[in-house]
Amino acid sequence: MEFSVFVKLTARQTEAVTMHVAATTTATKFHQDVCMRLNITDQKERTSLLFGSHSLTSRTSGILDDFDIISGSNITVCIEVSGGSYNDERYIHPSVKKSQGKCIFLLVENDTESIRVEMPCGHPVTPVGLAGYVDDQIKSGETKIKCPSCQMEWKVSEIIKRGLTQSEREALEQGLTKNNYTTYRECPKCGITIKKTDTGVKMDCSFCKSKGTSFIFCWSCKKEWKNKGSSYDNCGNDSCGLDKELQKSLDTCQMKTVDKISVPKIRVCPKCSKVIEHRDGCRRVVCPNKDCSTEFCFICLKVSDKGKRFPCYDKPCKSAASRQTLPKK
């Protein structure tokens, strides 16, 4: 028989991840499933699961029933650390290739003294430049660390090998765990945990749909989607704090370079207010809302009109439009 338990990354965390398990599930299997669910498999050997006076790790034998874990039990993830002296020096793993190329972060012009190493994609970095870039990505809420030059995803283990200090490593691991956790919500109807894959807030539960009972809900307020119109960002619930949440994203999102001009990476369509994140390519974008499909410039936000291209289509933009303010309803 299956039942539900709640797993938290920290004791003070207000929301927990619901996991459906069987009483006969082994402690080893449960520990492995938790690490996969929370995206911390790279830290599995340093984690344990706390329940009452029990500590479940990958080395623990027995099944969940042996530890008196029942439906509704609350389990906390614990990260193991070593005691003694704290070594915060940079260490580059012997397997990492050195490089003579120019660091892609270029902290100092014509720097010939700093050690440079190759990332898995081949681009050269200095350990200090890499650490600074990783810190910026974590603070910006990124769930993956990618090369800014080629967009190849860098594994955490490969980043650590290239000279991160102990404190920088901990900030990276804990930051990614926290950022990834915020991309999950439970379907209010069936309880299945859903991962958010884009900037939209209109969520269609695939599990409910597979059971023949389609259920669409709002990512922000977790209530059933009431708006039957074309909006993808307004659920229609009066109590929803979505506008405040979206405005915060527009006000604080990371800047990026598009056609040599620095712009916010998140905009809203000038016509329908669909939230859009610029991933790659030039400034010309088309609103993904099928009921809108407006073509506009991501830099100056000027739109196409009556079948014509937007005004700056064939000439460079001189300046970027400021961060946007959501229109009042």
Rank of each mutant, 00 (worst) to 15 (best):
Ala16His: 15
Phe298Pro: 00
Ile104Lys: 12
Thr10Met: 07
Lys226Asp: 04
Ile216Gln: 15
Val108Leu: 10
Thr57Trp: 00
Lys178Thr: 08
Phe3Asp: 03
Glu113Lys: 15
Ile138Met: 11
Tyr91Gln: 11
Ala321Gln: 12
Thr41Lys: 15
Asn179Lys: 08
Ser114Ile: 03
Leu64Asn: 03
Gly72Arg: 05
Ala321Thr: 05
Ser214Glu: 11
Cys150Glu: 05
His31Thr: 14
Asp233Arg: 12
Ile192His: 15
Thr10Ala: 09
Pro94Ile: 05
Leu106Trp: 05
Ser48Asn: 05
Arg267Met: 04
Val5Ile: 05
Ile79Lys: 15
Ile75Glu: 02
Tyr184Trp: 13
Lys98Cys: 04
Phe3Ser: 04
Glu80Tyr: 11
Asn180Trp: 11
Lys202Gly: 01
Lys328Pro: 02
Ser99Met: 06
Met36Tyr: 13
Glu186Asn: 15
Glu295Gly: 02
Ser273Thr: 09
Gly191Gln: 12
Ile115Ala: 08
Asp65Gly: 06
Gly72Ile: 03
Ser73Val: 04
Leu164Phe: 11
Leu107Thr: 00
Cys287His: 03
Arg267Gly: 02
Tyr184His: 14
Ile299Asp: 02
Gly241Asn: 14
Lys44Asn: 08
Cys317Thr: 04
Ser293Trp: 07
Cys121His: 10
Ser140Met: 06
Ser71Pro: 01
Arg185Met: 07
Ile92Gln: 11
